[in-house]
Amino acid sequence: MRHSVATTYRAIAGAVALFFILYCASFDQTASRVIVAANGAQDSAAQAYTEAKTATVAAGKTCGEAGRAAGIALPPITDKASGAAAIAACKALGVNVPYNPFVLNQLVGPLNAAYDAIRGLNDARVAVKAGQANDFYGMLNKALGAVTQFYAAAKEAGLTVNVAPLERLQEEAKHVK
């Protein structure tokens, strides 16, 4: 009987230790993968934004030169509607502005917020690993929200973004326990 009780206690201790090991390994590895996936998504999105911005700025300068040569005053850009008016004015001058510059600028906020949130999330992961309490899941939601918000805004802006990193991020995030 004593042997049986001792075996049971050993097994319980082993099971608890096993679950602790599984939980810690699972959490840290999954959190690491989420962070790497989120960072990959942010990087991909930032590159897409930069390419769109470069093309749009170049077109804006070409349009300005064409407008000045033709003696035409081009509309100042202060909101989405005036951005669309600028695109139309440039088109009339034979210059294609690929994206509404005002709308494109609206992507900057969530893109930079995602950058900061991902690094904050990694700090939180390291803190959890060190046994320090913190709001890891709150930061996870913040990072996911910022990346997702960017993809939604990019879609609205007509910006072509590879959604594979976002899909991978969403898949990885499901496994964070």
Partner: peptide
């Protein structure tokens, strides 16, 4: 992923962006 792997990934990928200057859009 080790901590070093994650740090290296964060250091080599991802960046902040700057908005377009709407005031000087036409050059």
């Amino acid at each position: 992923f080790t901590d070093a792997d994650v740090e290296a990934h964060l250091a080599s990928k991802g960046f902040k962006v700057e908005p377009i200057s709407l005031e000087s859009f036409y050059g």
